[in-house]
Design a binder for these strands. Structure first.
Length: 551
RNA sequence: GAGGGUGUAGCUCAGUCGGCAGAGCAACGGCCUUUUAAGCCGUGGGUCCAGGGUUCGAGUCCCUGCACCCUCACCA
C-alpha cells in the first residue's frame, strides 16, 4: 500500500503504481524481457508438430519406465500448445500444455535445456527451407531457453522439441531440449479449475470460453462431426451440395418475419433468407434432382433458449421421392449421428433421456391431436371450446392489443385450421419427447405441400418432434403451378400479414416448366446439435450468438 | 413485450441485522530437481453494473436505468 492508511490511492504516483501492479502490465513487462533475450514472442511457422494424442499413442508402444527419459531417436518429438498449468519448482519446471487433442506434460530441467543433452538431429532432416521457415527455426541459444522458460505465463502458446519420459509417478512427460515461444498471452486466462463459467462472458468472448473450457470445445467439435456425417449420408445417396441466395428480393419458404436490407448500387430492398426452399425447388426444375444445402436462415423473431435470429438448417430435395423418403433420411441422419458420432442410442437432455433407436413412430396429426387435445380436430365447436379453455384467445388479444376488430374473446377471428394448430402447439408438442413423426397436417397451413390424395383437407407434410421441439419439417412437394398460385394467394385470418406466404411469380413460373414430384426436408441443425450434445440452450451450440451491445 | 432471478478483485465465489471490502486460484518478491489444481514464507490488487434516494453511516434498504439468465408469448 502506498501512502498512509487514511489516503485513497489517487495521486499520479499511486495510479502509476496501481497500473504497474496490473497483471496485463506484468505480462507486457515479461514480453519486453523476452524481446531483450532476442526472442520473438509471437513466433512463426512451426512445422512437423506431432499432436499430443499421437505422442501418447506412440508412448503406449514404448513401455517407458517411471523415472526414465528415453534416449533413442524414436522418442524425440516436437509438440505445441497452450500452457494451461505451470509448476515452477526451482531448477525444474513442469507445465501442462494443451493442444486440440488433449493435454501433455512438458518437463523442463535447467541442465537439459542448457545443453546437458544433445539437441536431437531428427528435426534437421525435415528442417524448413524457405526464408520464412528459416526464421521459424531460429531457436534461442541454450542459455536463453532456460530464461525464456522462467518468463512463461499461463496461457502462453509454446512449441517444444524434446524426448519422452515418465516421471517417478509415471506421468508421461516430454522433456524439453529446445523451447520456442509461439505466442505471448497478455491477459490472464480464467481460473485453472473452474474455467470461465459466467454465461455472458462465455458468449461475448467465446474464444476465452473455448481456450479455458474443454467441454465447450467438445460441443463445437461434435457439431462439426454431425454436419460432416449428414453430408456423408447425403453424398452416398447422390445428393449434391448447392448454395442459394441469402439476399432475396422476395422472402418465402416459411412463415416468419424477415430482416430487411438494401443494396445501394441497385437501389433495391432485399430480404435476408428465411428459408432456401423456393430456390432449391428451382434447382429441381433445372434437373439437379438431388440437392442439399446447409442454409443460414434469418428470422426477425424473439430470442430464446431454442431460437437464435440466425440459425442453420439442412434443407434437401429428392426428385421422384415423397415424404416417406424424407422420414428415412431423418432417421438416417439424426439417428445415425447419435449412434455413429455420439456413440449412444440414448442421450440425456435436461431431465429427459431420449431414445434415438430407429425406426421412430409415425403418427397421424389427427390421431395425436385427438389423443392429447382430447377433442376431434374436425369438430369446430369442440376445438373452439378447447382453445378457450387453453387461453388461446386471450393470448391473441394480448399479442395484438391494437386490433380494432377484436373487442372480446368470442370475436377473435381465427380460421379453424389456425385454431387447431394453436391447440396442437399447446397440448401435443410437449408430449413428444422421443423422436416422433407427425404426419398429414391440416392443408391450409401448408401452402407448399401436395394435398393428400384421400383427404383434400390434409397435406402430405410431417414434422419431426424431439423433446417437444420441432426438429424437422418435410413435404411431399406441391408441383402443380395452378394449385401453388392459388395457395400462395389465399390469406388465413389469424396469421399476421407480415409472416404470410408471399406470392412469388417467378417461382410459380418455374413450376410451369415442370418440377418433378419430390420429397423435401428441412432439419434444424442447431437444435439437432443441442439434443445430441445435451446442450439445453441454442447459444451453447452457436459459436457467436447474437448479444446486445455491452453496456 | 410481461413476470422472476443475477451483477462484488483477472477468474470462481463469500459478505450475517445497514457499521473498517473477504477467501481460493491468478499476479508480484523469496525458497525448492519429479510436480499433478505442486508446496511453504511474504506482498500488492476493488468504479461492490450505472445513476439517484433514505441514513450519522449503504455491497447490503428504496427508486430509475443497463446487461445477462430463466419462464411465457412469436418462431424452427
Amino acid at each position: 500500500m502506498v501512502g498512509c492508511a487514511h489516503c485513497r490511492p489517487h495521486s499520479l504516483r499511486d495510479i502509476v503504481l496501481d497500473s504497474m501492479s496490473d497483471q496485463i502490465e506484468d505480462r507486457k513487462a515479461k514480453l519486453e524481457k523476452i524481446r531483450a533475450l532476442g526472442v520473438d514472442p509471437y513466433g512463426a511457422r512451426f512445422t512437423d508438430v506431432t499432436t499430443h494424442a499421437d505422442i501418447r499413442a506412440a508412448a503406449g508402444q514404448m513401455n517407458i519406465e517411471p523415472g526414465q527419459v528415453c534416449e533413442g531417436e524414436e522418442a524425440c518429438f516436437r509438440a505445441a500448445g497452450r500452457v494451461v498449468l505451470y509448476r515452477d519448482i526451482g531448477s525444474l519446471i513442469f507445465m501442462t500444455v494443451r493442444d486440440r487433442t488433449g493435454d501433455l506434460q512438458f518437463g523442463l530441467s535447467k541442465k537439459m535445456i542448457m545443453g546437458g543433452t544433445a539437441v536431437p538431429d531428427s528435426h534437421e532432416a525435415t528442417k524448413p527451407r524457405s526464408h520464412e521457415e528459416t526464421q521459424a527455426s531460429a531457436f534461442p541459444a541454450p542459455e536463453v531457453g532456460w530464461k525464456l522458460a522462467k518468463l512463461l505465463d499461463l496461457g502462453d502458446i509454446v512449441g517444444a522439441d524434446g524426448r519422452l519420459g515418465r516421471t517417478k509417478t509415471g506421468e508421461l512427460t516430454l522433456w524439453v531440449t529446445r523451447l520456442t515461444l509461439l505466442s505471448k498471452c497478455l491477459r490472464p486466462p480464467p481460473e485453472k479449475w473452474h474455467g470461465l463459467t459466467d454465461v455472458e462472458a462465455r458468449y461475448r468472448r467465446r474464444y476465452v470460453d473455448l481456450l479455458s473450457n474443454p467441454d465447450s470445445q467438445q460441443v463445437f467439435l461434435m457439431r462439426a462431426r454431425i454436419i460432416d456425417y449428414a453430408r456423408e449420408v447425403l453424398r452416398e445417396r447422390g445428393f449434391i451440395e448447392v448454395e442459394t441466395p441469402v439476399l432475396q428480393p422476395i422472402y418465402g419458404g416459411a412463415a416468419a418475419r424477415p430482416f430487411l436490407t438494401h443494396h445501394n448500387t441497385l437501389d433495391m430492398d432485399l430480404y435476408l433468407a428465411i428459408s432456401p426452399e423456393l430456390y432449391l425447388k428451382r434447382c429441381l426444375v433445372g434437373g439437379l434432382e438431388r440437392v442439399f444445402e446447409f442454409s443460414r436462415c434469418f428470422r426477425n423473431e424473439g430470442i430464446s433458449p431454442r431460437h437464435n435470429p440466425e440459425f442453420t438448417m439442412l434443407e434437401l430435395y429428392q426428385a421422384y421421392g415423397d415424404y416417406h423418403d424424407m422420414m428415412d433420411i431423418c432417421e438416417r441422419v439424426i439417428g445415425g449421428a447419435a449412434r455413429d458420432v455420439i456413440g449412444a442410442t440414448k442421450i440425456q437432455f435436461g431431465k429427459a433421456e431420449i431414445d434415438y433407436a430407429t425406426p421412430w413412430p409415425r403418427l397421424k396429426y389427427a390421431d395425436v391431436f385427438g389423443e392429447y387435445a382430447g377433442v376431434d380436430m374436425n369438430d369446430e365447436a369442440a376445438v373452439r371450446a378447447k382453445a378457450r379453455e387453453l387461453g388461446v384467445f386471450k393470448k391473441v388479444l394480448r399479442e395484438e392489443p391494437g386490433r380494432r376488430d377484436i373487442f372480446a374473446e368470442d370475436q377473435v377471428e381465427l380460421d379453424h385450421p389456425v385454431l387447431v394448430n394453436k391447440v396442437f402447439e399447446a397440448t401435443v408438442e410437449e408430449q413428444l419427447v422421443n423422436p416422433t413423426f407427425v404426419l398429414d397436417w391440416p392443408a391450409p397451413l401448408c401452402p407448399l405441400t401436395r394435398r393428400h390424395p384421400d383427404d383434400p383437407n390434409a397435406a402430405l407434410r410431417f414434422e419431426l418432434f424431439i423433446h417437444g421441439m420441432e426438429i424437422g419439417n418435410a413435404y411431399t412437394e406441391l408441383n402443380d403451378p395452378a394449385v401453388q398460385r392459388a395457395t400462395l394467394s389465399k390469406q388465413l385470418r389469424g396469421e399476421e400479414d407480415e409472416t404470410m406466404a408471399v406470392m412469388d411469380e417467378d417461382f410459380v413460373e418455374a413450376l410451369e416448366y415442370g418440377m418433378p414430384p419430390a420429397g423435401g426436408l428441412g432439419i434444424g441443425i442447431d437444435r439437432t446439435v443441442m439434443l445430441l450434445t445435451g446442450s439445453t440452450s441454442i447459444r451453447d451450440v452457436i459459436l457467436f450468438p447474437l448479444q446486445r451491445p455491452q453496456a
